[in-house]
């Protein structure tokens, strides 16, 4: 049994969400889902790039998330370059019954921030990708029951 998986599960069951918002950056492999480390979350955002392998992976993650009983499992498209990318993701989600929650554009600023060793939000707070993630935050906070507001 991998201790790291186990720890996440413990934290998610015990984290007092009445007091704050818990955000978990999961490891990439679907293992964390099959081991049920994320079962206590309210929302799962599955990040997908606009190409088939990434979308297919996202689809599998969504299936596993729903099997775990996570109340809201939804796709966030990332690195969307143009209308063709957007159409590809929308089409895939529609034909596979996936909820497409938000789209984050491809943003060269992210590579610049990486080179500068800075967080994207500090490096370029008004960059398109950061603005799109801000919209995503607004949407999640607006649609999910939040028990307390710090």
């Amino acid at each position: 049994m991998c201790s790291s998986h186990a720890t996440v599960r413990g934290l998610l069951h015990e984290a007092p969400d009445a007091e704050r918002v818990v955000v978990v950056d999961n490891e990439a492999s679907p293992e964390h889902l099959s081991r049920a480390t994320t079962e206590a979350v309210d929302v799962m955002l599955v990040i997908a790039e606009p190409y088939f392998k990434s979308l297919e992976t996202a689809r599998r993650y969504c299936v596993m998330g729903k099997q775990l009983g996570i109340p809201r499992v939804t796709v966030v498209a990332n690195k969307v370059r143009d209308e063709n990318d957007a159409a590809a993701i929308e089409g895939f989600c529609e034909s596979n019954g996936l909820d497409l929650f938000a789209q984050v554009p491809f943003d060269p600023m992210l590579a610049e921030a990486e080179r500068a060793g800075a967080a994207p939000i500090d490096h370029a707070p008004s960059a398109p990708s950061v603005r799109a993630i801000a919209d995503l935050v607004d949407k999640v906070l607006a649609t999910e029951p939040l028990l307390a507001t710090g």
Binding site: V21, V23, V24, D25, L33, V104, P120, V137
Partner: peptide, 28 residues
């Protein structure tokens, strides 16, 4: 509220997670 952010390696999930967390904090 608990939010899990998942995705294939290289999908940008950590960038989204970190920025998401900072913006939730900024929202109060």
């Amino acid at each position: 509220m608990k939010v899990a952010i998942s995705g294939k390696g290289g999908s940008g999930k950590t960038t989204v997670s970190g920025t998401f967390a900072r913006l939730v904090g900024r929202a109060g």
